[in-house]
Design a protein around this nucleic acid. Structure first.
Lengths: 202, 202
DNA sequence: CTCATAACGGGACTCCAGTTGCATTAAAGG
DNA sequence: CCTTTAATGCAACTGGAGTCCCGTTATGAG
């Protein structure tokens, strides 16, 4: 082992260190959204953040390491979940939320870059998995509530159903490049709910 | 303009040039599958292919350019399509094919790397879109046949339905990292067919 | 307040991915 | 077979991403 980084900033996380981390992560997010994962220059990020490039290299080391930290930061702040009273209403709200995020001119490229970074580095991949596990768990109550209401079979897997809603939208983002519009979101939610009612996720 | 590459190999595509292209593309595929997109070294690919690194830089220029050419090559050879007589049978076969490809120790990492490369470069993204358009069109007859048999509504979009089968599997590959097993494939096909019969893709 | 030291900043340095120049090989056309 | 020149190979070169050294700043503990 011994390729352990002492994880600087953990011993003295006060004022200056926190400000540096915040500034660098914000700059990293901007740069990822604008330029994409592969064109990322840590020196450029340092410049944007008003920080010495040595600091960035010392604390995060590599681009994937920095992205992983950004993902951990993003996993911290959670999103509000809608409760409409019907499974279709809830999952349509979820699909619309994903749709507006992925089609946003800043967030869309950012998420694409995050996923790209994760596919290049195991540490970043772990961070990405945790991020989406968190997001998935936030929406799981919609599914369990629908089960209690008797809308869908008892054995339905919340995880599988929630992901079935997102999957077609991410497929467009990453693979086909088709526009991610409201119609696509509604279709994704409708298809997932229909399949769930027929017991496809049980 | 003027950053146009004269596309070497188009004027004299005979013996040596063809052999070089073949060897380099094979080496590139191997390297992508083993090391991933970001750790790709064109000099290493040249060495594997038994070719001077100058040749690789001159003909393809950048890593994304090389990947784009590889994708164009891959789009050329098509896969056999199964015809089982029922929509569920056909789409299950499709899902199983995708599943076995993505869970293959060589093909899985390769496809992940190809998608990663596409998200970093517009030219490669175009090549990827063409590749999947080709694949989608190959399976479209299954859907139109199902429409003629009256299994699903007349207005059903073949493209949307075909993609709905693949999407959950790619979501696992790229985002959650969960294993892509036969159960996931069958579930994807079952869910897509159920939703299609209810008119979710019409 | 004072001290020890974690964290930062600037700049010099290293190393290798990518470029360039030129000689060599071999397609394509006659 | 001979000629032309596209395509390749080798080796020297270059630029910038990433590293290292050391002086400076400011955090947290006593």
């Amino acid at each position: 082992m011994s390729d352990e980084r002492p994880e600087p900033g953990t011993v003295r996380p006060g004022g200056r260190t926190a400000k540096t981390r915040e500034a660098v992560l914000r700059a990293a997010g901007d740069a990822l959204a604008e330029d994409g994962f592969d064109r990322l220059d840590l020196a450029e990020i340092a410049r944007r953040a008003g920080v010495g490039k040595t600091t960035v290299y010392r604390r995060w080391g590599t681009v994937p390491g920095l992205v992983a930290d950004l993902l951990n930061e993003m996993a911290a702040d959670s999103l509000p979940r809608t409760e409409t009273g019907s499974l279709l209403g809830d999952l349509t709200a979820q699909a619309r939320l994903v749709q507006s995020t992925l089609s946003d001119p800043r967030q869309g490229p950012l998420f694409k870059a995050l996923i790209t970074a994760a596919s290049c580095d195991p540490q970043t991949a772990d961070a990405l998995h945790r991020f989406y596990d968190t997001r998935t768990e936030e929406w799981a109550p919609c599914v369990t509530a629908a089960i209690e209401r008797g809308e869908i079979p008892a054995g339905t897997s919340p995880t599988e159903l929630i992901r079935a809603v997102s999957a077609p939208l991410y497929y467009r983002l990453l693979i086909t490049g088709d526009p991610i519009d409201g119609a696509a979101a509604d279709r994704a939610a409708q298809a997932a709910v229909t399949a769930a009612k027929a017991g496809a996720f049980a």
